[in-house]
Amino acid sequence: MSEQTPVVVIVDAQTPGNVGTIARSMKNFGFSELLLVDPPELDPDGEAYGFAGQAREDVLPNARETTFEAVLEAYHTVGFTAVTNEDETSHVRFPFKTPRELAESLAERSGPTALVFGREPTGLHNEELAQLDEICAIPASESYPVLNLGQAATIALYELRNVTLGETQLPDRTGSVADPADVERFHEHVAQFLESIEYAPEKRAKTQRLVRRLLGRAKPTGQELVTLRGVMRQAVTRNRE
């Protein structure tokens, strides 16, 4: 594992399924080393492995048990908690970073880092939070800011994915913009279409300008222009019948 890749620490998880869920999220977003403080029993035939997906093959079976004190000694620690109604006078949780802000700062630091997630019912205790180097909180509704342990870890690891995976390249979701020559042929087709349907001659030039402006903003693909030309051809055919 690269020194730049943070380890994930789960403290006193009560539910094996949440451990499996976090392991799966780690696999999704490029994290591989899982440390467990006071873990529940992780039966290979139980819910932890059932929830882990493909992480049952590497992340979960390679998880190591450790102590909270050992994590403090070996890593730069980031604790995760909910945003509460406390203010800047409560030094346990303030100041804090959001996961996105944390991603930016971790990308610039060197040395081993541990992302520390707490127990289901209460999260990390204030005494534990006070010993960590940084606090990260996931902003949520003021009326119900508490997140499930596995849910919180999944959100955080997703936001931190650039630390492990780099800038994720998404496939082109828009298609390639039509060639300028195809666009001009389309405008010629529009002129022929207006003539074919006996559109008012005095309005044709203005209408063609409007169509040109519209296509300029829309940046249509070649396939979209082919479809529109097909619609116009069919309209002309129906008009002649």
Rank of each mutant, 00 (worst) to 15 (best):
S105H: 10
R100T: 09
F96Y: 10
A130D: 15
T98S: 04
C136W: 09
Q131D: 13
P121M: 06
E127D: 15
T98V: 03
A130C: 10
A114T: 05
L106R: 07
A130F: 12
K97I: 08
A103F: 02
A130K: 13
L115K: 04
E134Y: 13
T113I: 04
E134M: 11
R119W: 11
R109N: 02
R93S: 15
A114Q: 00
F117C: 04
L102R: 05
L106W: 07
F94T: 09
L124E: 01
R109M: 03
P99A: 01
A130T: 13
E108C: 10
L124R: 04
A114F: 02
L102Q: 09
R109W: 05
E127C: 08
E127L: 12
L124A: 07
C136R: 02
A107V: 03
H125E: 15
E120Q: 08
R93D: 12
G123C: 07
F96P: 06
L106F: 07
L132G: 00
A103Y: 00
R93T: 15
L132Q: 06
A130R: 13
E128M: 12
R109H: 02
R109F: 02
S110P: 09
I135H: 09
P121G: 01
P112H: 10
Q131K: 11
G123F: 10
V116F: 00
D133L: 11
K97H: 15
L132I: 03
L124T: 03
F96T: 04
A103M: 06
E120M: 07
E101K: 00
E101V: 02
I135F: 08
E104R: 10
V116Q: 01
S105D: 13
G118F: 03
L124N: 01
N126W: 10
T122Q: 14
R100M: 11
R109Y: 07
T122G: 14
L129C: 06
L132E: 04
R119S: 15
E101F: 05
A114N: 02
E108A: 14
Q131M: 15
P121C: 09
E104N: 12
F117G: 07
L129Y: 06
R100F: 02
G111R: 00
L115A: 08
D133H: 14
P121V: 08
F117K: 05
N126P: 10
F117N: 08
C136I: 03
R119M: 15
P95V: 02
F117S: 01
T113V: 12
F94E: 02
E108K: 14
V116G: 03
R119H: 12
E120C: 01
D133R: 06
E127N: 13
L102P: 11
K97A: 14
H125K: 14
F96A: 02
G123M: 01
E134H: 11
P112V: 07
A107R: 07
Q131E: 15
N126T: 09
G111I: 08
F94D: 07
T122N: 15
L129N: 04
T98P: 01
G111Q: 00
A103P: 10
E134P: 10
